[in-house]
Simulated scan of single mutants.
Amino acid sequence: MLKNQKPIVYVDADSCPVKEEIQRVCQKHVVTPVFVSTFNHYSPDADNDNWRIIDPDDQAVDLYILNKVEKGDLVITQDLSFAVLLMGQGVYALTPRGKLIAEADADEILYRKYLRQKNQKARNRIKGPSALTDEDKKRFEMQLENFLSNNEGIF
């Protein structure tokens, strides 16, 4: 990060279920999040200056964010493998379920990904994550609020 530059909150916005919560908490802390989405997930909200709409190539959103983030930034993403990658750059990662990804989570995340890929290759049916609940959204909002409060003056 450049000297005197404030950290940024990036949002992997393709199918992000907590956009309203992000807007509400960031507005309270006078932080402008950057929502990154592909054309395939275009939303009328995207006309806002804090949206970046990019090509729908595979992993395009991840690559855009990866090329823009700097140490100390926060990324909100459902992609746990991407979160592990970001940690290596000193970037914080928060899931829509309110989990702040830590270095200690990396091995388990990558092992679970390995098992999922192995099952996919074997054509075994894989159950996806459970639906996001109101409790999950509240936990997310509280965690984002805590993160921004703890880093007040930085963000």
Score class of each variant (00 low, 15 high):
77 T>E: 03
78 Q>C: 05
76 I>C: 05
81 S>V: 12
72 G>T: 02
81 S>D: 11
81 S>L: 09
81 S>H: 03
79 D>F: 02
55 D>T: 12
69 V>Q: 01
85 L>Q: 05
71 K>T: 12
78 Q>G: 14
81 S>P: 07
53 I>G: 05
80 L>P: 00
63 L>H: 10
72 G>P: 08
53 I>D: 01
82 F>V: 04
83 A>T: 05
55 D>M: 13
86 L>H: 00
79 D>S: 02
62 D>F: 08
59 Q>Y: 14
80 L>A: 12
71 K>Q: 15
79 D>Q: 02
71 K>R: 13
76 I>Y: 07
55 D>S: 12
66 L>Q: 06
82 F>R: 01
71 K>V: 12
83 A>Y: 03
83 A>R: 03
55 D>F: 10
62 D>V: 10
70 E>F: 08
56 P>G: 14
81 S>E: 14
85 L>N: 04
55 D>Q: 12
67 N>S: 15
79 D>T: 00
57 D>G: 13
84 V>K: 00
60 A>S: 15
65 I>T: 11
56 P>W: 02
74 L>V: 09
84 V>H: 00
80 L>R: 12
86 L>Y: 06
85 L>G: 02
62 D>K: 10
61 V>H: 05
63 L>M: 15
85 L>M: 10
77 T>D: 08
70 E>Q: 14
83 A>N: 01
83 A>F: 03
80 L>T: 10
65 I>K: 10
77 T>I: 07
66 L>R: 08
81 S>Y: 00
80 L>E: 09
75 V>E: 00
67 N>E: 15
71 K>H: 09
86 L>M: 01
78 Q>T: 00
76 I>L: 06
62 D>Q: 12
78 Q>F: 06
76 I>S: 01
86 L>K: 06
59 Q>K: 14
65 I>L: 08
60 A>G: 08
74 L>E: 04
77 T>A: 05
69 V>Y: 01
82 F>S: 04
70 E>V: 14
68 K>Q: 15
78 Q>V: 00
79 D>K: 11
60 A>N: 08
